[in-house]
Simulated scan of single mutants.
Amino acid sequence: MSDSAAAIKTISFPDQDLLEAVRPLPDGLRGTVWDFRGDPADVDVADIDAVVLPYLNAQDILDVLSRATNLKLVQAQTTGVDGVAEAVGSDVAIASAAGVHAASTAELAVGLALASLRGIDAAARDQRDARWRHERRLSLADRKVLLVGVGGIGAEISKRLLPFEVELTRVGSKAREDEHGHVHGSDELVELAREAEVLIVITPLTDATRGLIDADVLAALPDGALVVNVARGAVVDSDALTREVVSGRISCAIDVFDPEPIPEEHPLWQAENALITPHVGGDTSAFQPRIVRLLKRQLAALGSGAEPENLVQRGGAWS
């Protein structure tokens, strides 16, 4: 047990319901509620060693974390931890909720692709007008799918694509071989995009991936291609995507965008070849039981002095 890990005694939760869901806490750990709008009811902010961020709108409260002057660990309820390191510095450990949202986000990625290709969104619009319009649409079967992102959610998307008999090409940060075959490097994206009929984006947002799907990649896609983004909005060049979609050359089915929410006057709202969901990839019935199970494992690790899961920044406690 490291000295810093042993010093984690007080952990805050963003609401009482989540704290109750993970009880009983291991011996030696104390839970409190801190909603980041005021002060915790029963402890001083300076006594908080670890915090669980809220699931929704966590970005809006990151500046408040500086009040926890003895903070050693931040636990996110999301897979992405955008902006957390900048808010807390390098001495604080950061853990993601990797795995919690994998199944839900993967099923949405496939669902968006199916809905767009098969025209389910168009049929829903037609239904309001009692309009019966038969068209031959594209099938997901036999499509050439380019999957950008081979982490936990990317692996789940790959598994769900297999029964649809697609021709799958996977892209990671660097070219390599893994247990499923070849992974192309992101430096090959423009060339790979020339053959892609469906581009699915699920890479984390980092300095290296911001704008990764840029105007050159989008322009390389064949006419009629579909872009599915279930990663972070800023991984895709929003202006370039909008130009390509509004022109009618390609389609998009997106759960994320930059900025969010998409402004009311934005042209994508009116584009018939755009399918938009409001960043709901991980927010399903699967979320609550899975985040509770993860948090219980994290608390057990902290209680025993073991290293918690999903550390994306080790800080001083587990360096």
Rank of each mutant, 00 (worst) to 15 (best):
Asp3Gln: 15
Ala6Glu: 15
Lys9Asn: 09
Thr10Gln: 09
Thr10Tyr: 00
Phe13Gly: 02
Pro14Ile: 08
Leu19Ile: 08
Leu19Thr: 11
Pro24Gln: 04
Pro24His: 04
Pro26Cys: 09
Asp27Gly: 12
Thr32Ala: 06
Thr32Leu: 03
Thr32Val: 15
Arg37Cys: 02
Asp39Pro: 01
Asp49Cys: 05
Ala50Val: 08
Leu53Phe: 00
Gln59Arg: 15
Ser66Leu: 12
Thr69Ser: 15
Val74Ser: 08
Gln75Thr: 04
Asp82Asn: 10
Gly83Trp: 08
Ala87Asp: 05
Ile94Cys: 03
Ala95Ser: 15
His101Asn: 13
Thr105Trp: 09
Val110Asn: 00
Gly111Tyr: 07
Ala113Glu: 08
Leu114Lys: 05
Leu117Asp: 04
Ile120Glu: 12
Ala122Phe: 03
Arg128Ile: 13
Asp129Ala: 14
Arg133Ser: 09
Glu135Lys: 14
Ala141His: 13
Ala141Asp: 09
Arg143Leu: 02
Val148Cys: 09
Val150Ala: 14
Val150Phe: 10
Ile157Arg: 09
Ile157Phe: 04
Lys174His: 15
Arg176Cys: 00
Arg176Phe: 00
Glu188Tyr: 06
Glu191Ser: 13
Leu192Val: 04
Ala196Leu: 06
Ile202Met: 07
Pro204Val: 12
Leu205Asn: 00
Thr206Gln: 07
Arg210Met: 06
Ala219His: 13
Pro222Gln: 12
Ala225Thr: 08
Leu226Cys: 04
Ala234His: 07
Arg243Met: 07
Glu244Asn: 09
Val245Leu: 07
Val246Ile: 09
Ser247Cys: 08
Gly248Met: 05
Gly248Glu: 06
Cys252Gln: 03
Ala253His: 01
Ile254Tyr: 08
Val256Phe: 06
Ile262Phe: 07
Thr277His: 04
His279Ser: 01
Asp283Glu: 12
Thr284Glu: 03
Thr284Ala: 04
Phe287Met: 03
Pro289Ile: 03
Arg290Gln: 12
Arg293His: 11
Leu295Arg: 02
Glu307Gln: 13
Pro308Tyr: 13
Gln313Lys: 09
Trp318Pro: 06
